[in-house]
Every structure is written in structure tokens, then in C-alpha cells.
């Protein structure tokens, strides 16, 4: 559980009372106090977050506002026809903060200065990665420790760990990569740029994104397009056009062109091949980690000069 979530809960209870009913709130209504908390610089000190943290650790507590938000996100995932990786699953992480620190210390991957009244640092300095504070002298663990609590126990269970993250957090994930690799994991990093709005990338805490929510995008698109064209058009725009880097600002016009393109693809993209040929095609789109790269795959839908089994791709990947 990260500090900013706990701060949000504490702020809600402090300003709206502990019995507020969030069941009918929208995502915009739930975001307003979050933006307000940051604007007012009204975040509580860590000591005031402790009761929340203890409830999370002890009972798997989730604040009603977050429960509502998760429900909204599930509806939005469905609206976008996205796979829900388990938004509502609330399982405790497999390791405690102390388990993680002990496991890291055993391998010389952390520096524990708490006995001097200092922090715990994550240490991959032998790989040239800067020392990174992870647990404050007050005991507050940051999001990297939260990730390690979940990921370290899973290392042996999976062939590969894919870290997908905001490009601004690249240094932290280079570090996570080194740490997980030291525990035997095979790690691939997928760094994603945020889509700028009117030329600027601002943290969600500053607001300014209210007319670009999932529901706002969907309502506008679905007034002119069928659901399948909406699903495919969004993928063409956000994956193939904006790519991982998102160098250009969000553009309703370019999105609209991709929605129109999606309509044509659904009508004309009928080229189908047998299973063997389809597999052979997918192999050509593999990333270094061995998995099929969604960017290369989506871009291939725009291919005009080479044969692409667009019918197979639409049926099995994009519009199953």
C-alpha cells in the first residue's frame, strides 16, 4: 500500500467524515478530493497514516472510496474490452517489509541504516545504479518495497516478469530489474510515456484531465461509431499511432481517423491463414523476451505492402 493512497483515505475521512457513503460517486467525484488534497498541501504526516496501514496489514482493509473506484475501473475495463488482471483481488503480499529487507540484506542488495536513525536503501551500486531510499527512518516503506513484497515471492513461479511503468519512473525500474534479476528472475522492462494533453505532461494530482476520462472518450466515440470500431480504433490510436513514447499530444482528430480506419479494417480485414502460418507470423513479432510484442503486432494492422493475416488478428487478439 503506497503512502499516497493512505494519504487520500486519511484526507477523505478527515474532511468528509468516516461515515461518508461513496457508493454513488463517479470517478470524477472521487478524484476531486485527491486533487484538492494536493492543491491544499493537506497531506497528513506518516504517524496519522499508521492506523490505516495497520488495518491494511492486519485485515486487508480497503477504504470504501477505493472500493468504489475499483468498481468503476472494472466497469471501464469492460467498456474498453480490456482483460481485467484482477483489479478487485485483495490478497496480502507474500512478504512483509522486514522479510524483504532481510532477503535483500542476505544478498548485499540493501543498506540498513535504521540503527543510526537513517533509512534503508536499495543497493545496486555495484551495477552503477544510484543508491535508492526505500524505508524511511520512521518506518515508512515506499512503493518499491511494496512491489518487492509482491514480486519476490513470485520469482520462482514464472518464466518472466514484465515491468510496465511510467517512463518517468525508469531509474526505479532499472533498479527493480537488477534486484529481481539477482533473485533469479528474467525481467523485461516496458517503459511507457504518458500522453501529453495540450503539450504538457502533468501528474494526475494537478487535475486538468477531467474531459479526457475513459467515459468522456467513450461517450464521444460511441455517439458515431459501433462498439467494435471503438475498441479497435482506440488500440490503433494509443498503441500503433502514439507508440510507447507518446511523443504527440492527445488529438481528438487523429483518434477519429483511427476510429474510421477501424471501421474499414473490420469491413476489409478478412485475410486469414491456417494455424501454422498464423503462428509463423506471430513469431516474426516477438520481442527479446520471447513474447509477442503488442506494439509490433498492432502496427502490422497498418501494413499495406506485405501480407498480414488481419482476419486472424482481429478474431483472436483485437476483437475476440
Amino acid at each position: 500500500m503506497t503512502a499516497q493512497t493512505l494519504e487520500y483515505w486519511e484526507y477523505l475521512d478527515r474532511t468528509l467524515g468516516p461515515d461518508a457513503d461513496y457508493a454513488g460517486w463517479s470517478d470524477l467525484e472521487l478524484s476531486a478530493p485527491y486533487v484538492r488534497m494536493h492543491a491544499e498541501r493537506a497531506k497528513a504526516p506518516f504517524a496519522d497514516l499508521q492506523p490505516y496501514l495497520e488495518a491494511v496489514e492486519r485485515d486487508g482493509y480497503v477504504h470504501p472510496a477505493s472500493q468504489r473506484l475499483i468498481g468503476i475501473w472494472q466497469e471501464q475495463f469492460a467498456r474498453l474490452n480490456l482483460y481485467d488482471p484482477g483489479l478487485a483481488i485483495n490478497e496480502p503480499p507474500g512478504m512483509s517489509v522486514e522479510d524483504v529487507v532481510a532477503a535483500l540484506a542476505e544478498r548485499g542488495l540493501c543498506l540498513d541504516h535504521r540503527r543510526y536513525g537513517g533509512p534503508v536503501y536499495l543497493d545496486a551500486t555495484d551495477r552503477g545504479v544510484p543508491l535508492r531510499r526505500a524505508v524511511g527512518a520512521d518506518g515508512q516503506a515506499n512503493y518499491l518495497i511494496c512491489s518487492l513484497r509482491q514480486l519476490l515471492p513470485m520469482v520462482g513461479d514464472y518464466d518472466r516478469i514484465l515491468l510496465a511503468y511510467d517512463r518517468e519512473l525508469d531509474p526505479d525500474h532499472v533498479l527493480l530489474d537488477h534486484l529481481l534479476t539477482a533473485f533469479g528472475a528474467s525481467v523485461t522492462r516496458l517503459s511507457l510515456g504518458r500522453v501529453p494533453l495540450d503539450g504538457s505532461i502533468k501528474s494526475s494530482r494537478h487535475g486538468g484531465w477531467e474531459s479526457h476520462t475513459v467515459d468522456a472518450l467513450a461517450d464521444r466515440a460511441l455517439s458515431d461509431f459501433e462498439e467494435e470500431a471503438f475498441w479497435l480504433g482506440l488500440r490503433l490510436y494509443f498503441i500503433a499511432v502514439l507508440t510507447r513514447e507518446s511523443p504527440a499530444s492527445f488529438s481528438p482528430d487523429v483518434l477519429r481517423k483511427q476510429l474510421q480506419r477501424a471501421v474499414r479494417l473490420i469491413e476489409n480485414g478478412t485475410e486469414r491463414v491456417d494455424d501454422d502460418a498464423y503462428r509463423a507470423f506471430l513469431k516474426t513479432k516477438r520481442a527479446d523476451g520471447g513474447y509477442v510484442d503488442p506494439y509490433r503486432l498492432t502496427v502490422s494492422l497498418n501494413e499495406r505492402h506485405k501480407p498480414v493475416p488481419k482476419g486472424n488478428l482481429l478474431d483472436e487478439v483485437f476483437l475476440p
Binding site: H113, G117, L131
Partner: peptide, 11 residues
């Protein structure tokens, strides 16, 4: 840049 200033507030 690689390391951090030593912190030790405990007595």
C-alpha cells in the same frame, strides 16, 4: 550522485 548523504538522527 551514486551514493546518498549519510543520515543518522538516532542518539
Amino acid at each position: 550522485l551514486l551514493l546518498r548523504a549519510f543520515e543518522g538522527e538516532a542518539p
